[in-house]
Design a binder for these strands. Structure first.
Lengths: 152, 152
DNA sequence: AACCAACGTTGGCTTGTCCAACATAGCAGG
DNA sequence: CCTGCTATGTTGGACAAGCCAACGTTGGTT
């Protein structure tokens, strides 16, 4: 038994490697998310959340805030616009830009996704007590802040 | 200034979402890794580390310990075998299995990759002090342990 | 003998991340 | 004015990771 437990452990060289750990936690989160959310909902959630918090944004601003490429923002907005969850119009003040706005349907969809996200969050962090969960979130946030300039 | 800082922040709905944070940290680690390591070296490192720590393994065991699919293990081993970094032979005791062994070249390559991994690790965690780094690693390890049964 | 489970392989599909090229629009210099 | 330079949005494709399906082989069970 103890032998089998030991046999299933990942090697020590990986157990303490933060980039490997983060990758595994990330795919774990992706699996849990996939069970509850419709297809491609993760990116949608991020974009809708940005619009809800900051109001109208250009696509480039969305990308900068979320760490996404312009290209991918474009595709996500196509999906969202098809479902009438965002409104995309040329900015009269700067015709290079598109002003993206959250619609009522988009706001409703955001709240739905938020519930799924909360459920996934609880499931993912179930093995940690409340204090540990907050610690983990704080440490990850600090780590990400320290790398802010880099993302595209 | 403070305005612009605020403008670049991701929305609050995401900042505290562990699955989103982990995903971002993961891609950050991938970016840092890609700058130093040859192509496809992350999976190679994991497999070589497993062989170094546990000795000869079957492909299925490698997959279980690393949370990888059999399919992907197969491909990784093709790469490693082409470079003579592992040896793959049918198990005489159970002809379904392949016994995978680390070669001297594989061991050398592992140590090289370990150095790169250490550098990436340091860069990734640079924004945290030593105590915070250990805390983060411990919390991630505990989280992963709590989900052990699930991975394929 | 017949059935089922495990193993390794091939092939393909989906996400997420990223890069290159293009056309348009604003801006700065002369 | 005209000439670059930058920013923006779009299209297309490359690439790694993760996953699933199917197949043939082998081992174990009944």
């Amino acid at each position: 038994m103890a032998d089998m437990d030991h046999a299933l452990q990942p090697p020590a060289r990986l157990r303490g490697l933060a980039s490997w750990q983060a990758s595994k936690v990330s795919t774990l989160g992706a699996r849990l998310t996939a069970r509850r959310m419709p297809l491609g909902a993760r990116a949608d959630f991020a974009v809708l959340a940005a619009l809800e918090e900051y109001g109208a944004l250009s696509q480039a601003e969305i990308g900068r805030r979320l760490g996404l490429d312009r290209n991918d923002v474009s595709g996500i907005l196509n999906r969202l616009e098809d479902c009438r969850r965002v409104d995309r119009q040329a900015d009269p003040a700067n015709r290079r830009r598109n002003v993206v706005t959250l619609t009522a349907a988009g706001r409703r969809h955001l709240e739905q996704l938020q519930q799924h996200a909360d459920a996934v969050q609880a499931e993912l962090l179930a093995g940690l007590d409340t204090a540990e969960q907050r610690q983990l979130q704080a440490l990850l946030a600090k780590l990400l802040d320290s790398h802010k300039p880099q993302p595209a």
